[in-house]
Design a protein around this nucleic acid. Structure first.
Ligand SMILES: [Mn+2]
Ligand SMILES: [Mn+2]
Ligand SMILES: [Mn+2]
Ligand SMILES: [Mn+2]
Lengths: 222, 222
DNA sequence: ATATATTTTTAGACAAGACTAAAAATAATT
DNA sequence: AATTATTTTTAGTCTTGTCTAAAAATATAT
């Protein structure tokens, strides 16, 4: 039943998807409320509606889980979001810190043809500007090898492959540090006191970064 | 006061702009209702709101006229609409009959930077895929030389420069006739009986077209 | 186990934007 | 000028999505 969903309904589905990915299912009400900056009462209302539409499984006081159709829709939204972000960066020269909010709106434009043409135009990219995988038309995507920088041992040669926070401030800070996708890092030293790290950027500049940063940066060996 | 407007408010402003352009100001309630396929009662409500926001001049039972700020916003929406249509056709290979409805949604994405970058990427086009002028950042645009085909004398060499109807069916019909922007036409004969015309397309194919068509096709000499 | 704290749901209200039906104003006809 | 027709506005209702405050359920701590 491909019923036309509202922007609000779509955002809720996406929020449930994201929270399930992060914390596992079922997703509880407050997590969704936090994700969408909305009141818990509003979430309860919407969960009832989405459940009535057969998009999620929902039990009061327990939590919500995406059903097949809900999952399909959420994945499609993520595909759209990430393709628009790719377009904005690759074609319109936006910075990676500027694109999330725009994509948050563009993802609700409802046209499979549009998004497939965009995909084609961009050359079927596999990852978006933040390093996140882009689902294909069938919803399949490539998982990247990723470890949190904060959990890597000392001295390995590492490459930045992603960020788990798309906040403009965070991304801007990385830009200031000259850290972007593909940047090479070495962990020089770990400070147990506050879990901060001394890292060498591009075998060049040495900086100390807080755990707040290293725990939101994905890297892979080499 | 650059207050953030809703999609609905924006669509009303654009409808008023369009109707004023066509039939002159003030624009009456039913014209707007027809343009937006909405009930007259809904229009009355909205006119009161837009008037309260200082975007239109509105007198009950008389009609609505865009004020400066309303006009600025409507022009900006038209700019966005036509740039998105241009993008879809030029970059994503859409047909000119497929782009209007998508642009109707895309135009509400609120970012000057986005639209200026798009403009730049497209090479600052002056006209959209239907031949309509695209306002620049300041809202200025080039008027094209245009005459309705139905009002031209016999035998002149003509070039198609636009259409006054963006309906997919109409545009598709033109496509079938091999008529698009830039197509060369000659009027071979006029039939007074029903104002139909015999025209030669690209000095090639001769067809008879109804007044319904010739009165929605813009041409210029040469 | 019982009391306390937290989470979630319900109840009730509100704003935006739409509709229908009825009333009021304006326009057109006889 | 009076009647009829048309247009527009008002009145009242509905849906969606949001909120706050209160009640209910669940989890935590003593
Ligand atoms: Mn994003
Ligand atoms: Mn969104
Ligand atoms: Mn259009
Ligand atoms: Mn629109």
């Amino acid at each position: 039943m491909p019923t036309k969903l509202s922007t609000a309904e779509e955002n809720y589905l996406k929020a449930i998807y994201k929270q399930a990915e992060k914390g596992g299912a079922p997703v509880n009400t407050n997590a969704i409320a936090r994700e969408l900056s909305t009141a818990a009462a509003s979430v309860s209302d919407m969960l009832r509606k989405l459940s009535a539409k057969g998009l999620i499984a929902y039990q009061k006081y327990y939590g919500a889980t995406l059903l097949d159709e809900g999952n399909r829709i959420a994945t499609k939204l993520i595909r759209r979001h990430r393709l628009w972000e790719s377009f904005l960066v690759a074609t319109l020269s936006f910075g990676w810190e500027e694109v999330h909010d725009l994509a948050e709106e563009l993802e609700h434009i409802d046209s499979d043809l549009l998004i497939d043409r965009l995909d084609q135009f961009l050359g079927y990219p596999k990852f978006d500007p933040h390093g996140d995988p882009i689902p294909d038309r069938q919803g399949r995507y490539t998982l990247r090898v990723q470890h949190l920088l904060s959990e890597m041992p000392i001295q390995q040669h590492l490459t930045v492959v992603g960020v788990s926070n798309h906040d403009p401030e965070f991304l801007h800070l990385l830009k200031d540090l000259n850290i972007q996708l593909g940047t090479r890092l070495d962990i020089v030293q770990k400070f147990e006191f506050d879990d901060s790290l001394k890292v060498l950027i591009e075998e060049h500049t040495s900086v100390i970064i807080s755990n707040r940063i290293s725990s939101q940066l994905y890297v892979r060996p080499a």
